[in-house]
Design a protein around this nucleic acid. Structure first.
Lengths: 125, 125
DNA sequence: TGACACCGTTTACAGATGTAGTTATTTACA
DNA sequence: TGTAAATAACTACATCTGTAAACGGTGTCA
């Protein structure tokens, strides 16, 4: 399975599918109301391309497709994250983390959670 | 100054320029040896496009251009980071941070550093 | 049994991107 | 002063992206 990248607009569609799969095209279109201003035809094009890219697949239900993700979200997140880290932060995770820690407003709970992950990281060799 | 996005390949060039500016095209090409396998002409094309996009500028030195960044790295990093956060993590910084914390191997020093940033964040309202 | 509505497929097209060769101009050396 | 080398500019072209209309098949309601 050769890696094909998911474009910006396609990520918006995939996020909807991952969140609510399985979904028929109409449902994807409905959930993108407000999020984006695409014509329904545009969304259909993207669903089609995502099937071609083997990121999505579908089951036939009568005469309509019901889409499901074929690639796992976590794998796509991993690939996109690695590529972003490489591109923008030259592969250095620490500056990336510093950047996002500084530029995000986090709740006390979230901060605690992140501290705990840091503790875990420290425990590993 | 309308925002134009810096492509994947262009980031590689910009990282070299930001690290060593001002740089003549030849120097950029030299520093990309090994990093990438582009023909020199390819790199020149990218330099040219980056000037068009107003991300780079240059000073004439004899018959050659000496390039300098026109956009600040931190601004470009900020823009790219925001877009990535939006696209891949639906705008939620905490999951993004958790992901990178878990998937990176960090030195003890780096972990301390990050803890300190978390402390700072907690102090802010 | 038509006509309409809906579905996925095909086609369209401009702009961005990756990749690089060709050309014209300038400069420096012989 | 002529010629070779180097430089930036122009041209090229296939693919990817964003955006969407047109088309052809099918199901449904009158």
């Amino acid at each position: 399975m050769p890696y094909v990248s998911i474009s910006d607009a396609e990520w918006q569609v995939m996020n909807v599918v991952w969140d609510g799969q399985p979904l028929a095209a109409q449902e994807v279109i409905a959930r993108l109301e407000g999020e984006a201003t695409w014509a329904p035809a545009t969304i259909k094009t993207m669903l089609h391309r995502l099937v071609t890219k083997k990121v999505l697949t579908y089951d036939l239900q009568g005469n309509r497709y019901v889409y499901r993700a074929r690639a796992r979200r976590c794998d796509c997140v991993r690939a996109a994250s690695r590529s972003f880290l490489e591109r923008v932060f030259d592969g250095e995770p620490a500056p990336l983390l510093a950047h996002f820690l500084r530029s995000s407003k986090l709740s006390a709970d979230e901060i605690d959670q992140l501290r705990r992950i840091l503790d875990e990281q420290e425990a590993q060799p």
